[in-house]
Amino acid sequence: MAGRVVTPDSHAFPTRRYDLVKEFVTALVVMALLVVVFAAAVGSPDEKAITMKSWAANAPFDVVATATSELAGTSTTAGYGPPYNRASDGQALGPITLQKWFGVTHPVNAATDLVINPVSTLSDSATQAAVAQWKQASADQQSTWANNYANALGKVSDGDPAKVATGDYGPVPVIAAGELTLAKGGSLDGLLTTSSTFYGTDPTNALLLLADGSYMANIANAENLSGDQWGMMNESGHYPGQPWLWLYTFWYQIPPFSTSDNADVQVMALMMLLSLVFAFVPWIPGLNKIPHGLKLYRLVWRNWYAQHPEAVTATQTTPTRV
């Protein structure tokens, strides 16, 4: 094409010796040394996992409040929507409701799966009676009891169940206390993870319960790990995290995403779009001209340009000819 500037075939240029294998082996040795030095000098973080036992020991009232919110249907999991339940439609991008379309693939009934089923394994007569009373009651009655208790707990400054005023709570206080008993005894993790299978490789329900409480989030907040603290790129302790996620976590910090109910799907969609733009930069007019304008390539090839002044002239005419 006339006037079209072409990039010639690299195999046609004069060459000089360049030992690729030696370069690779040298790089391997240098990188290995760097990795060993940093691994030895800085190490890596390993903050122990929270157990239900440690949650119960450090924040027993939070366990009770969380169990109550599962029964009342007010916890995050209870109102989540797909893929756990149909309590809501989940997030939407305008008319596109991917979360709803993909449906419920991991069914979770927050009250039954996270509280009633584990608590029903307690054999004391008070708990057995409370569970029986809960199961026989109507959904409306269950909701009234649990919401009454949740409100009453909220009125106590430290959330201590012992300080709650008397009221119409039905069996909820006994059941919530049962959850705390199981957590303190160390059996709640297992009941949530391995009750239906010997090999407990899927702790989804235990993690959902933990995430519904405030305890884990408070620890994460103290370590700058929350979503609104650029937490996605941070790490616990004195360690670098995932700095390559800077742009992903950046969007969560600014409006409209920081105040949106659909922030997750909006940021995901935006990052998909930006990733495609990045991958297709070579074909995007304007973006593919930026390097020529930046002129940093003059530094990379400065020796070669010093020997080929005619090429420098050619680069100056390129923009008008492309």
């Binding site: 450090n58 924040a59 405030s214 790490e235």
Partner: peptide, 11 residues
């Protein structure tokens, strides 16, 4: 709720 005693030092 109170934090556990052994949170790593702030980076």
């Amino acid at each position: 709720p109170p934090l556990p005693p052994a949170i790593p030092l702030d980076a």
